[in-house]
């Protein structure tokens, strides 16, 4: 493999919160075009890893580094990471009453364009793009005028996350438990949206508890995280094995 082509490189990452060490030394390399799945039992550090990648405060990196396209990601604010092309899909998307979904995503898209030196989209251009991208996740237009995630069902919130991703076209999407709380139909729609956004240039990290998401989103690599470190990395066949045997055989 070509080392020059690494999009994300996590080396020896140790992270603490309130003096408790959650990540105890994570190493991971992601290249463009790849889909990585990170699996593991509850409390193993999956969500901490995604939060640290997105720049959430209160997490203290005590050792190691994260390079994104060769740059120190940890030096960037959450919004700077977003502009650089990192996207975090939340496990529990936040409700923001009073901010309509359309205003929210329009503000976000235009902030991204500003950083790229592009002019703001006209109202017509924006609407066209929005309609097109909403169709990726079969969202109807009534969602645009509602408050961000307010009164959305679990499935609607996750579809909204993928809609945001579709609008922002990140290089690296980290999807934290995107499958949690989804029924089969919603899972199919959400996964369909994610697959549609896949290109040879971008990469995806799906964090999941269950194998079932991986029936829809086929990963190139699967990593099992336990007690804050990756204890096993393998190809997609590992998911089947975990489904059948659980995590115990890996842990012991």
């Amino acid at each position: 493999m070509n080392n020059d082509n690494i999009m994300l490189k996590i080396s020896g990452l140790k992270v603490s919160i309130d003096d408790r060490e959650i990540l105890t030394g994570v190493n991971l390399e992601v290249r463009p075009g790849e889909v990585h799945a990170i699996m593991g039992p509850n409390g193993s550090g999956k969500s901490t890893l995604s939060a640290v990648l997105a720049g959430k405060e209160n997490y203290k990196v005590t050792e190691g580094e994260i390079l994104f396209e060769g740059e120190d990601l940890l030096k960037l604010s959450p919004e700077e990471r977003s502009w650089a092309g990192v996207f975090l899909g939340f496990q529990y998307p936040i409700e923001i009453p009073g901010v309509t979904n359309v205003n929210f995503i329009k503000t976000a898209v235009n902030e991204h364009r500003k950083r790229k030196g592009l002019p703001e989209l006209s109202a017509a251009q924006f609407l066209k793009l929005m309609r097109e991208r909403m169709a990726y996740v079969e969202m109807d237009s009534s969602f645009t005028s509602r408050g961000v995630n307010v009164g959305f069902s679990g499935g609607e919130k996750k579809r909204n996350e993928i809609f945001h991703m579709a609008m922002l076209e990140p290089k690296l999407a980290i999807l934290d438990e995107t499958d949690s709380g989804l029924d089969v139909d919603a899972l199919r729609v959400v996964a369909g949206g994610i697959n549609r956004l896949k290109t040879p240039e971008n990469a995806t990290i799906v964090i999941t508890h269950y194998q079932r998401l991986l029936d829809y989103i086929v990963p190139d690599y699967i990593h099992v995280i336990y007690k804050g470190r990756i204890i096993k990395s393998a190809g997609r066949e590992l998911a089947q094995e975990i489904e059948q045997r659980g995590y115990d055989w890996l842990i012991n």
Binding site: A54, S82, I94, L168
Partner: peptide, 10 residues
């Protein structure tokens, strides 16, 4: 934090 992850400045 949610808004910032979408690229909206603080």
């Amino acid at each position: 934090f949610y808004m910032r992850t979408r690229g909206i400045p603080a």
